[in-house]
Design a protein around this nucleic acid. Structure first.
Lengths: 302, 302
DNA sequence: CTAATAGTGTCTTTAAGACAATATCGT
DNA sequence: ACGATATTGTCTTAAAGACACTATTAG
């Protein structure tokens, strides 16, 4: 801080300045948080004694109000003036899950002028990763209807165009969300352009089916981030129960990355992220599998 | 959107709802953008015929008002209600540099309650990377004094602590900023904790010397992001002029990453990110070097 | 010639990919 | 024994690190 008696160009000391300062001089936007709460769920297999299939799930809330009445939206709410954004996010997260100790990270702040038809709303999106086994409560404290949706993510088109001073890559991504009762979907266009050496990226909604606001964009962004981070951080263990088999872990990697991995290489790679225990799975109808836990002592930054 | 005649739990149609909706019911925070504008500068060498040294530079503005009068701050300003956050960032960027086509990306939104002593201000930080050779204007349209600061970044301490249900890694990072006339510095503490399998990260200012607000945090975050992205994207070419030598490019990598690279391996690695031209450097006092340009056709996503 | 940087060749080390082979359970 | 998954071994391929060697200029 500057010395207490220093004066600014208007001849004010700091104390005088703060007294005079009027925060309400012009109109402010509203600020909200929107939560992307992901989990991994075991789906029972119809088949003989196969391993349970896993799926990535996202929590959505059915809107009981205008706008987008009846559509599904990310859980979220307003940031109070006396509350940090992160505190608001934690509050929302807790109100949906009733759990405290959950991994959460800020993703992106969405600031287009007309993203909310009511008024100017800026929304800061957060991603949370929960181990489903700790979630006994069926989410939703409030009267709102909440449900888990299985997430599908697919690149449906991708092509390059030449432009005046460079080129452009367009990708169309399809997000599909399905709960026990509802089936939603959306398409996002991502435009990456290079002009000279300057690269720019634009993201826009092509189509949104039952998903409120610009939340498809947020969902697409979150999945992209999750995919990216899974490769160079230990973020994935937030989705795992305390004890897990390497095959389970591999499956979670596979559903997030959207591709199959080779068991041998996979095991080599994550070897020092996990610690083996003395325990095994049982009654599986096949060879038991050793249980592992996350190795906390692993170096955070490689 | 829901059908036009649908009614919500208060029996309102969407049109009625929007008419009745009152945006000004409660107090809103202010929202600003803060710009981290980076450049690479050639510093002339005192020595015989050595290559010019390079340094990473950041643009700061000297505050002529309370609070933090006389200290240096990131350029930035309020987001108007009728303007997207990104537009506000572009506007600020243009007003400082007088250039239009600049690489810019959103970094993080800082939402602590007391980050600004005047009132509640939420700030969204953006990073911009400029090729210094296109910047003929000495930055700063407004009356404010602007200056480029050379950026230093150093890990000064790092240790692990065992806690109840896990462990904690504490790192102390020192940021130093020096212009022709001023020398600023700050220390940031980063605390990464693991409890069970849940990891959390906290960032706080230990000390800030001549740097206004919480801008040391923003600077530290930006450098971290820049370092990270330089390794898996082509972001670095935004800092390069249209034509450059591979040695120059390597030096820029080195100052950003804060470590030396081996020339042979480096050349192999970036081989398909660049295209060679027929031109060479001249009058260098040593063997001329071939000039390259950025290869736009490179696959954006590997 | 020398100082300085540019650029290449190649051997070693490490990591990733591919795939076969072996192990162990419930029925 | 069979179906299913678990786990290891090893050969191949690709990338990164290390370092020596050759090339080209100004003075």
């Amino acid at each position: 801080m500057s010395p207490k008696n220093a004066v600014d160009r208007n001849g004010l000391t700091e104390q005088k300045f703060l007294e005079v300062y009027d925060a309400g001089t012009f109109e402010h936007p509203s600020v909200t948080v929107d939560m992307l709460i992901f989990t991994v769920l075991n789906r029972a297999q119809d088949n003989y004694r196969k391993l349970p299939d896993k799926s990535l799930q996202l929590l959505l809330i059915k809107r009981g109000e205008h706008p987008f009445l009846g559509q599904w939206a990310l859980p979220g709410g307003f940031v109070a003036v006396s509350e940090s954004i992160e505190a608001a996010a934690r509050r929302e997260l807790y109100s949906e899950t009733n759990i405290d100790n959950i991994y959460m990270e800020q993703l992106y702040t969405w600031g287009d002028v007309n993203r909310d038809p009511r008024t100017r709303v800026i929304s800061c999106s957060y991603m949370a990763l929960v181990d489903r086994s700790t979630l006994n409560v069926q989410a939703g404290d409030d009267a709102d209807e909440a449900a888990w949706f299985e997430v599908g993510y697919e690149v449906i088109e991708e092509f390059r165009r030449e432009t005046a001073d460079g080129s452009e890559l367009e990708r169309l991504l399809r997000i599909s969300l399905s709960s026990e009762t509802d089936s939603l979907s959306g398409t996002v266009r991502i435009l990456e352009s290079v002009q000279g050496h300057v690269r720019q990226l634009k993201r826009e909604i092509v189509e949104s089916n039952g998903i409120a606001f610009d939340h498809v964009l947020m969902i697409q962004y979150a999945i992209e981030r999750l995919r990216g981070k899974v490769e160079y951080t230990d973020i994935i263990f937030n989705l795992m129960p305390p004890l897990f088999t390497l095959s389970e872990l591999q499956r979670v990697y596979e559903i997030i990355l959207g591709k199959e991995l080779l068991a041998a290489a996979f095991r080599r790679k994550i070897a020092d992220a996990v610690t083996e225990t003395e325990e095994f799975t049982k009654d599986a109808g096949h060879r038991p599998s050793k249980l592992y836990r996350y190795n906390q002592l692993r170096n955070f930054m490689p």
